[in-house]
Write a protein that binds this DNA or RNA. Structure first.
Lengths: 212, 212
DNA sequence: CCCTGTGAATTTATTCACAGCA
DNA sequence: TGCTGTGAATAAATTCACAGGG
């Protein structure tokens, strides 16, 4: 029954989940969910089947239990505390953005910086804390996720320090590869300028489309 | 010689490129480049081999020609103009972030919004323009890439309008699937809250690591 | 001997096709 | 009949293993 769930599936689950919490339906079919999220219906059925038979044949899936199950799988059912390190443009934007998205499952509980001019200023509902307090705050606030929005030069050292006190998961916006010595630390790298460069490959000739 | 270059390779090229422009070396081996960017050396050799034999056996790769070739592949050699639509937290942060990253290859040339209170304000070196001017600006500024940092409700319609006047590539931060009718439009979806949710799967038990 | 280039093997992911149940 | 669940087929990506040139 319980085989390993592929990474690709895990990365799709949050997209399903968001639609499920906003859809205002009691039941849904893989076709509808696929339409809404941009994946194929087979893919969705296969993904959902990894964690048991939730659908009823001929009908579809009950939204509420499906939603609960995805939250359980993603470990969102008891909430995750995240810490943003680096209160520059990106860091502050991220805090405010997540703040206003009203997420209850993943919550940003602290913003750190090492610039004395920034420490103490308000960002959304938080106050920027000095980097020296990092280890203590991670401990007391039960931080399980690190969001790195700082310069490449500092990112590696900070990640190492966070990993040392038990942070296993990172969202890294710094333009550098993070390699803590720990094998079970997971780093998701997002580099906005790299994304744009890769995208540029797909730009090709700039021609107005015929209205089909 | 010229078989199709896989998508996965294209997405890695920008990471190689960034290291190549900052490394201050004349030659580099696949091992060194791999160490620096976090990929395996075999992978790098395979990637680079897709666009011809650039290395010399026993020695490595000449940095300058390799750099030029990657830029050519990614179509970064003649520059790409991008337009950011939505001057909220994320949009403004993105503009300032890319501004200060001093990118010459992908350049943000315009920021649009529909809020009269925001139109006319400065964001980095740009002034926020009204959404009505979008089609005209895309034309006159030769915009080839759209960056969508606006609410889900507006994103689909805006993308459609942009595609109609020839924008083929989108970086979509809005929490919604973009489906223009056009098959050759490429949408890269980035959803920061979804990334954090997927990451939460990897948080598991929060235990300090033993210093190994 | 070192490091590239590349077929072959393997792993991973997606799509197909259809059996089975409401 | 409609939609799920799933093995089988296919495709894509990665890793292995080593031949071959400098």
């Amino acid at each position: 029954m319980s085989q390993r769930i592929p990474d690709a599936t895990i990365r799709r689950l949050p997209a399903y989940l968001r639609w499920l919490v906003t859809c205002n339906l009691e039941r849904v079919t893989s076709g509808i969910l696929g339409q809404a999220t941009g994946f194929s219906s087979e893919q969705i059925r296969k993904d959902l089947a990894y964690f048991g038979a939730f659908g009823t044949r001929g009908v579809g899936y009950e939204v509420a239990p499906l939603r609960r199950e995805i939250m359980r799988i993603l470990q969102l059912d008891h909430g995750i505390q995240a810490m943003v390190v680096g209160a520059g443009h990106l860091g502050t934007a991220l805090v405010r953005y997540v703040d206003q998205a009203q997420q209850r499952d993943v919550k940003i509980v602290a913003v750190m910086d090492n610039n004395p001019r920034v420490i103490g200023t308000e960002v959304g509902s938080l106050v920027v804390q000095p980097i020296e307090a990092m280890e203590n705050l991670i401990e007391t606030l039960h931080v399980g996720m690190g969001v790195l929005t700082l310069p490449a030069s500092a990112a590696v050292e900070i990640a190492e320090r966070m990993a040392n006190v038990g942070v296993h998961a990172f969202l890294n916006f710094a333009p550098v590869a993070i390699c803590t010595g720990y094998p079970d630390v997971f780093v998701q790298h997002i580099d906005l300028t790299l994304e744009m460069q890769a995208l540029s490959y797909f730009v090709r000739t700039r021609q107005p489309h015929p209205i089909s």
